[in-house]
């Protein structure tokens, strides 16, 4: 409970009444509209279902933030959109730019959403359960994309996931949310070696009938 909420707090989509969320030393909850705009220029979010805008083509979706934050020409935006779609492995489809989100598969929608989030070249990308509802091949593909973007663009990724292989493969640090707190934070190896029963049971998917 609360994983997606954590991400939304980080980007100022939800207000909070206790604790701190700091971005470059500034409290996110106290930011004015201009600072929030700047924050969202640097921190992008990939939503669980992709959250592509239904009424817009893939091109309009991918270039949305560019239109908001830059004065790029249409040609520059087109080139940037193609570059981003190539990066997420959708460049093979020449018509992809003009397709509507409804005509895309689940995996393609997630990748198009990823392309939208990297178009503006953010410093941080927040992923809300990026592999939910995908088949094993697409899960592996998304994991590969996250690692690739970390390496090629140098972005910091914060990935909320239940998918342990993704967690182990994509992360330098893992934090486990347990009863509304993060009591277990460490490298993947440290978390895997943690003797706490809740950590062991969670990462190994152990279920006890008496838990019901």
């Amino acid at each position: 409970m609360g994983k997606s909420v954590c991400l939304k707090l980080m980007i100022g989509l939800l207000p909070y009444d206790a604790g701190h969320v700091l971005y470059r030393g500034k409290e996110v909850g106290e930011m004015d509209a201009e600072n929030l705009r700047e924050l969202r220029r640097n921190v992008a979010m990939v939503f669980q279902g992709g959250a592509l805008f239904d009424s817009m083509s893939v091109f309009d979706n991918v270039t949305y933030a560019l239109r908001e934050h830059t004065k790029m020409s249409d040609q520059e935006m087109l080139e940037r959109a193609r570059e981003c779609l190539d990066m997420v492995g959708l460049g093979y489809d020449k018509d992809i730019l003009y397709r509507m989100p409804a005509s895309l598969s689940g995996g393609m929608r997630k990748r198009a959403a990823l392309a939208r989030s990297i178009a503006i070249k953010p410093e941080v990308i927040l992923y809300d359960e990026p592999t939910t509802g995908l088949d094993p091949a697409n899960i592996e593909r998304i994991g590969h994309m996250i690692r690739k973007l970390q390496k090629e663009l140098g972005v910091t990724s914060i990935v909320v996931t239940h998918d342990m292989p993704i967690a182990w493969n994509c992360s330098n640090r893992v934090a486990m949310l347990w009863q509304r707190k993060f009591p277990y934070i460490g490298t993947p190896a440290e978390i895997q070696a943690n003797p706490a029963p809740e950590v062991h049971e969670f990462i190994n998917g152990i279920y006890h009938e008496d838990q019901d």
Binding site: K8, I11, L13, A33, R37, R40, R41, A44, M45, F47, Q48, G49, A51, L52, F53, D54, Y64, A65, E68, H69, R116, I120
Partner: peptide, 18 residues
Amino acid sequence: GSMKVSEQIDAIASLGAD
């Protein structure tokens, strides 16, 4: 309402638009 449910409104805000 559909946009809210599918997080499209949050997506607009997260992309820096109002």
